[in-house]
């Protein structure tokens, strides 16, 4: 068993090239996840996040490197690793025809719980994830959020030490997304280590203690979300002026209130400037623009997108160095 300070997931120099692809999916992937934390892999589609998760969850045999999860080697002790992990993939991996209870009982039986214990565990998890009322309904009638919650519950039969979540909220509406986030935080409170992948900066920011930015099969930046956001430059205010001739004047006002760097686009009559995340700064900008007598067509606070994270970390937009 590993000590508490040691990494519960440790990947070193993992390489994987699928036979059908020319570029490696993992190209020297390194990762260390501390126990009891939420660690996010953030990256665009095709960055290698899913392959990384599948490699760490014993599903992909990699070409080179070493992965240890919960004290066991993924390649040589896969069965032991499987007893200690849970995985929730991009699609809800459930039996659509069976009800929620039957699904959980089946997975519990396959975790080698005795029938009675399987029934008890299923009932407990249904209760905990707010699915007791829908227990007998076939899963194909569940909403997206309910499926994800049941999917999560199915990964938690044996209270795994490490839970892998591959894009847990992709395709969910905001309410379902909040439900999943709440469930994940609850798990971490109970001591589970969570490794999740996401394309959403906001999700990484909300959930993760540490974020690793993944591109082209390796980690290109890592740190707490705060630090990452600082490097990216945080939120920006975006002002669209009504009169094209006033773009320069707006730039001058924003420069005075917000400071550099300004992003001026005369074609769309838009000026962007960095601001803190708080609304009070936006109010300050609005006042300054008003005092200068500028007619504003649109003003908005924009959080940095994944694209901007990449732009500031790598100097190019997502998807550019590919192919």
């Amino acid at each position: 068993m590993t000590g508490t300070t040691e990494a519960v997931i440790l990947a070193e120099g993992v390489r994987k090239t699928y036979p059908s692809r020319s570029r490696p999916s993992l190209d020297g992937f390194d990762l260390a996840v501390r126990p009891g934390t939420v660690h996010a892999l953030l990256g665009p589609n095709g960055a290698g996040k899913t392959t990384a998760v599948r490699a760490m969850a014993t599903l992909v045999r990699f070409d080179a490197g070493r992965v240890r999860v919960a004290g066991c080697d993924v390649a040589s002790e896969s069965r032991r690793v499987r007893e200690r992990i849970g995985l929730t993939g991009q699609y809800a991996a459930l039996d659509e025809v069976l009800g929620g209870r039957r699904n959980l009982e089946m997975f519990a039986r396959l975790h080698h719980l005795r029938p009675g214990a399987a029934r008890a565990r299923a009932a407990e998890l249904l209760e905990r994830f707010g699915l007791a009322d829908a227990a007998e309904r076939p899963v194909r009638q569940y909403s997206g959020g309910m499926r994800r919650r049941l999917d999560l519950a199915a990964s938690l039969i044996l209270d795994p030490r490490v839970l892998f979540l591959d894009e847990p909220t992709t395709g969910l509406d905001p309410r379902s997304r909040a439900e999943v986030w709440r469930a994940v935080r609850d798990l971490v409170d109970r001591g589970t280590t969570v490794l999740l992948t996401t394309q959403y900066l906001e999700e990484a920011d909300r959930l993760a203690d540490t974020v690793s930015v993944v591109e082209a099969g390796r980690v290109i930046a890592e740190g707490p979300p705060e630090e990452l956001k600082r490097r990216v430059g945080g939120s920006r205010v975006e002002v669209v002026v009504a009169d094209p001739s006033e773009v320069d004047k707006a730039a001058e006002v924003l420069g005075r209130v917000c400071g550099a760097p300004l992003d001026v686009d005369p074609d769309t009559q838009t000026v962007r400037a960095p601001v803190g995340g708080r609304g009070s700064e936006l109010a300050k900008v609005v006042r300054a623009l008003d005092e200068a007598g500028l007619e504003v067509e649109d003003i908005a606070l924009r959080r940095p997108s994944l694209d901007e994270v990449f732009l500031s970390l790598t100097g190019r937009r997502t998807g550019e160095g590919e192919g």
Binding site: R54, A57, T58, L59, R79, R82, E83, I85, G86, L87, G89, Q90, Y91, A92, A93, L94, D95, E96, F107, L110, H111, H112, A154
Partner: peptide, 18 residues
Amino acid sequence: AGRGVIDRFRTLPMAPSA
């Protein structure tokens, strides 16, 4: 296989060919 159900089965500590 398409819906990832097989992946879930494969990460279970069950008999591999069951």
